[in-house]
Design a binder for these strands. Structure first.
Lengths: 211, 211
DNA sequence: CTGTGTGAAGCGCTTCACAGCG
DNA sequence: CGCTGTGAAGCGCTTCACACAG
């Protein structure tokens, strides 16, 4: 069966909702309730889950902790993943301070080319030169947060790929070229801003979009 | 004609590529070249553009400055948009320092509920209490960067909507409820991280995704 | 009788082949 | 003759209706 990749990102949302329900002490839920919280249809929720298995009880619904565990399993969040930050400028430093990576992700490396920055302590470690990537990545770090300037992004990505990285969260406004085994997700702020097209798009075309 | 919203985000990429070409002194380009840089097909490039008009010359290609101007026009980037940051924690402060908003976006407001933070100067202004949103937004601020904790996000969004905001870049891991006229784009880090599903997804399902 | 799980229909985005214009 | 612009085909995601299990 072919799984739509959009379904995966919705799974993440469902998982978050389940965690909120659990925190509220709610033990049982339904596709209807999950749908409302996630702002999708109940059909969509059930279909998304059905790609991976049957986790509910007909006539009853879903047990919150059970579905939560299954989703964590599916999403690969039942283990710890190592992260590193490449580029310790403003954004990289802010991310190093970010407390919200959760229990499935751990910052394990901080890299920069600038000798001025190398050696500086950051929360959870010390900034190291990018030359050390090949020693630091294998077996320890799976995902990189790439927060270097646009011009340096492709070169840094090449280093990461050579070091054996599995995925890159790219904050730079470029389309990176990497082997297809390496996953890249673009999270550029400006791209995000302009994805707010409904708000800023030339009015001449706005209604055609909305239609 | 109905415009796929995915086409819009690609337009942003094409625009960035055109700016790079212009910086390199290249005056003429083709759907082929744009496609290669954007990592899509030339068919896709031409179709995306065709939703909005005809900007090239058959048998020749596209003139870089012309297409650039047209794309800026379509995307509504030929004017200045006012931004504000709501929630001046680590992420909000990092964004306030972010130099890359370009000429179409200008930070015009910084808000927080914490009286400790109110009054503190930041690059380009001073932190104000959220109560002032209704006075500050109308006619000056169209888009908000929402960087408050998850629990506070919906309430802050309600304030912004009441103040007349047009779009919200939501950095909190929640699905916001807003009127449909207000555009919301979710840019939560963890959502981004887990969108790297190809890298972390349970191997049991990975190949079904890739297929 | 209730709410899940799913094959099939519907629909929108992408791909394509080629018409059209310079 | 070259490259754009586009109607139509192809394909994948979403929606739906209903069978089915509890």
């Amino acid at each position: 069966m072919k799984v739509p990749s959009a379904a995966i990102s919705r799974l993440v949302t469902y998982l978050r909702i389940l965690e909120e329900l659990e925190a509220k002490g709610i033990h049982r839920t339904s596709s209807e309730q999950l749908a409302e919280e996630a702002q999708v249809t109940a059909f969509q929720v059930r279909k998304d889950l059905s790609y991976f298995g049957s986790y509910g009880t007909r006539g009853v619904g879903y047990t919150v902790p059970v579905l939560k565990r299954e989703l964590r399993h599916i999403l690969g969040l039942n283990r710890k993943w190592g992260l590193c930050i490449v580029g310790m400028g403003r954004l990289g430093s802010a991310l190093a301070d970010y407390p919200g990576f959760g229990e499935s992700f751990e910052l394990r490396g901080f890299f920069d080319v600038d000798p001025e920055k190398v050696g500086r302590p950051v929360r959870g470690g010390v900034i190291e030169p990018v030359d050390l990537l090949p020693q630091r990545v294998p077996g320890r770090i799976e995902i990189a947060l790439l927060t270097v300037p646009r011009e340096a992004a492709q070169e840094a990505a090449d280093l990461l790929v050579a070091a054996g990285i599995k995925g890159i969260l790219n904050f730079a406004p470029v389309v990176l070229e990497v082997p297809k085994e390496v996953a890249v997700e673009n999270v550029d702020f400006l791209a995000g801003l302009t994805r707010l097209s409904f708000a800023i798009l030339n009015p001449k075309w706005r209604e055609e979009m909305m239609g």
